[in-house]
């Protein structure tokens, strides 16, 4: 953990119009809020960006098949899915599991998004595997907290997130937790925010843009996400 390379910031967006690349410190976890699909796309882009640079990727999926999510990450990374097999792990919590083509990348099958302890086991096992392969850099995406919140009460979800964000800090990883704002009241969003180090607000008007809120030393200006 004292490795300097392991604790350097993670890049979220390229430099743009004279602005430096947007980075957040290693160990950060953020709540990614969006009213529509832009949030999921933003997270897939982030995971793909990491994968392209040789980082490890852990995805928790509640809705999409493990294969679908893997393809989205591979596409964002600009590689074939097979090229990610070593570095991509999926915790698959879909209640209706149909895709059977994704076995090599599924690290943990969880019957329902309600089974938070099983998701936690998936995190532990993925971190253990990543350590054996390459301990340095890990990006985590959870798609989505909104679905978990439809199964589990808010306090339990909060504590789940709080624990995971401390675990992510411990690993010097970064975590992106998706919340679709249209599905929840403002109070739920503002409560959950505090389980994380900060928030990434994503909006989808004439292309996707995003800004980071609440992380010391990181600009809160809106930036365009599309290439």
């Amino acid at each position: 953990m004292t490795d300097i390379a392991a604790s350097r910031p993670y890049e979220l967006l390229d430099d743009e119009d004279g602005d430096a690349p947007l980075t957040i410190p290693a160990g950060s976890s953020v709540l990614v809020t969006a009213s529509g699909h832009g949030g999921q796309r933003f997270i897939e882009e982030q995971l793909g960006r990491g994968a392209r640079n040789g980082e490890q990727t852990l995805v928790v999926t509640t809705d999409d098949a493990a294969g679908t999510v893997s393809d989205a990450v591979a596409e964002a990374a600009g590689v074939e899915r097979s090229g990610l097999a070593e570095r991509l792990r999926v915790i698959d919590c879909q209640t209706d599991r149909i895709a059977a083509d994704s076995e090599p990348i599924v690290t943990q099958n969880v019957d329902t998004p309600r089974a938070l302890t099983d998701i936690g086991i998936g995190f532990k096992e993925a971190f253990d595997e990543f350590e054996a392969a390459d301990p340095d850099r890990i990006r985590v995406g959870l798609l989505s907290l909104s679905v978990v919140l439809s199964y589990v009460d808010r306090e339990t979800v909060y504590r789940f997130c709080q624990t995971l964000s401390r675990a992510i800090r411990q690993e010097n990883a970064v975590g992106f937790f998706l919340l679709t704002t249209a599905a929840h009241d403002e109070e739920t969003e503002n409560t959950l925010r505090r389980a994380f180090d900060g928030t990434v607000e994503v909006r989808d008007e004439d292309g996707i843009s995003a800004r980071v809120v609440g992380i010391d030393g990181v600009s809160a200006d809106w930036r365009s996400v599309d290439d």
Binding site: L116, T117, I119, G120, K124, F127, F160, T163, A167
Partner: peptide, 17 residues
């Protein structure tokens, strides 16, 4: 959190459930 080892991730979540 300094002493949160990977097994603690699991037991802490289990206790919150």
């Amino acid at each position: 959190g300094e002493s949160l080892d990977r097994d603690d991730i699991v037991s802490e979540i289990a206790r919150a459930e």
